[in-house]
Design a binder for these strands. Structure first.
Length: 526
DNA sequence: GGTCAAGGCCAC
DNA sequence: GTGGCCTTGACC
């Protein structure tokens, strides 16, 4: 049994089991805002506050408009700020407007009518949740198309959608904090010898050509076709997709960013893996001279990057050499912590997939380990906003600008990843379809090292059939939509395989990396 | 009678 | 407008 699986699956401190959660609502968090839940309200585990809010807003039929980008962070403190996003979140997590009583139903509460109502039973009250017919997916556009899905398929869709929301909002005890713009600013300060972003990078957005003017900055070590060459790679390739390896300019004015990123990053990491304060991480990285160096000396001859707790190497005023770029420890910790959350969330979601727990632990571990990065890519597609050419990081609520990510040079395989993200996003999948797609991605019987292929296939088959049926309902105009969607799974696997190959080339001369991010090193066998 | 999930009330 | 507490009625 692999250690990580024991840690995540069996350690309730890392994640509370779904079975346990479903028994006691008082110990759960509101799926809307994360506050203490008081029970099931409108079919969703939620707090009194969000219950009241949802009831009021549905009754009032008022319409709200978000003054930001429609993706406001919803937590205990910010939930009051944007009713539009709060209502949207309520609906997203599955609160059902039809559960709010209309006037007829309210009449039944009048004490004088109680007896008559019981006798006549003219206005039957809504049954309790456990007796409700499975709710029809919100993505199903018309009542006429809904019957295409069987009851079992609707139940499967609903359970996966809910599991996805539960995993997203209930299973991240340690989230990355701090501001990536600050971290980047420090790095640039080191590069240029003066504070702030260098000239030529106005408005917080850097263009590639400007960035490449600065000696030593790694830029985009891609071959001309955009493919990452095999060889050593930077640590952030652990987060190969846009949104998890760039930086976030939009958080300059964001909330919850009052403390220094440095403090937060170290605090976060200490909670997860307790790094030694004196630990230095060395990491070979690619740089602008990568290809030449690689041709001459092979991967192991790349310049080392030393990461110190101060996050500043070489010292300010000492420009790095062309083959010695650097990344800060803050940057690494931020990205690794974020990836840690993704892993936990993926495991949480996976545990809720029907019959998954019937598999052997060994097969469970194989499935999760192989799916992590693919799920990350799919999530990026789900959270991509084409109008802003950005990805909303649904873990921290940050907006990750694609331009900034490309300019940062931290994502060496950004272009093919970006193409995938844009293509999948362009298919306009519903939340239900994304949930099914992710579940199917995880439960892949053809993963290497799976011992009981048939058992895995038995779990996957109904999900594939459900997704096929659902796409017929939601995309009736495109007869080959399902086939295109399945092809996307092939695409994402190819992309991730490329990243994993790169990862395998990584040299980690300092084993203390493992102490910092044991979960990640174990999952990726680095 | 206990539990659950609705709405109601009212201080803030 | 919000949110904590209370009341109500169905169900077990």
């Amino acid at each position: 049994m692999e250690v990580f699986w024991k840690k995540i699956v069996e350690n309730e401190d890392l994640f509370t089991g779904f079975e346990k959660m479903s028994m006691d609502y008082s110990k759960q968090k509101c799926l809307v805002c994360g506050d203490k839940a008081s029970g099931l309200h409108y079919t969703v585990v939620s707090c009194e506050s969000c219950k009241s809010f949802f009831g009021r807003k549905i009754k009032s039929k008022a319409k709200f408009t978000c003054e930001a980008n429609g993706n406001c962070v919803m937590d205990l403190y910010t939930r009051r700020h944007c009713p539009a996003c709060r209502l949207k979140k309520c609906l997203d997590v599955g609160m059902k407007p039809e559960r709010v009583w209309d006037e007829k139903r309210l009449e039944t509460r009048k004490p004088l009518e109680r007896k008559n109502k019981k006798k006549n039973n003219q206005i039957p009250p809504p049954p309790p949740p456990q007796q409700l017919a499975p709710p029809v997916s919100t993505s199903v556009p018309t009542p006429e198309s809904a019957p295409m899905l069987s009851r079992e398929q609707e139940e499967l869709i609903d359970s996966l959608k809910r599991a996805k929301m539960d995993a997203l909002y209930s299973s991240a005890p340690v989230k990355p904090t701090g501001r990536f713009d600050e971290i980047l600013g420090k790095m640039m300060e080191t590069l240029t010898g003066h504070a702030g972003l260098p000239p030529g990078m106005p408005g917080g957005m850097m263009d590639m050509s400007s960035m490449m003017k600065f000696p030593g900055f790694s830029g985009m070590p891609r071959k001309p076709n955009g493919v990452t060459p095999h060889g050593p790679m930077d640590l952030t390739q652990l987060c190969p997709t846009p949104g998890f390896s760039g930086f976030d300019m939009s958080r300059l004015s964001g909330e919850n960013c009052n403390n220094s990123s440095s403090e937060h990053s170290h605090e976060s990491s200490s909670k997860t893996s307790q790094p030694h304060p004196e630990v230095h991480i060395k990491q070979e990285v690619v740089d602008s001279g990568y290809e030449n160096m690689s041709d001459k000396h092979g991967p192991s001859c790349m310049g080392n990057v030393e990461l110190k707790p101060e996050g500043r190497i070489p010292p300010t005023g000492t420009p790095p050499t062309a083959n010695k770029p650097f990344i800060t420890q803050e940057m690494v910790i931020y990205n690794m912590t974020l990836l840690g959350v993704v892993i936990r969330q993926t495991v949480a979601f996976t545990k809720a997939i029907p019959a998954f727990r019937n598999l052997t632990y060994e097969d469970q571990a194989v499935l999760v380990k192989n799916a992590i990065l693919e799920i990350l890519m799919i999530r990026c597609a789900e959270n991509y906003i084409p109008e802003r050419n950005a990805i909303i990081d649904d873990i921290t609520g940050s907006e990750w600008s694609i331009e900034a990510m490309l300019a940062s040079g931290f994502a060496t395989s950004a272009q093919p990843s970006l193409k995938f993200v844009q293509a999948l996003h362009g298919m306009q999948l519903s939340k239900e379809e994304f949930a099914l797609l992710q579940a199917i991605t995880i439960i892949s019987p053809d993963r290497p090292d799976i011992e009981h292929h048939e058992d895995v296939e038995k779990i996957q088959r109904p999900m594939v059939e459900t997704l096929q049926m659902l796409t017929k309902v939601t995309h009736p105009e495109d007869k080959v939509f399902f086939a295109k969607l399945i092809m996307k799974l092939t695409d994402v696997r190819d992309l991730v395989t490329r990243h994993i190959n790169d990862l395998m080339q990584m040299k980690l001369p300092d084993t203390q990396f493992e102490n910092l991010f044991p979960l990640i090193t174990e999952i990726f066998n680095v």
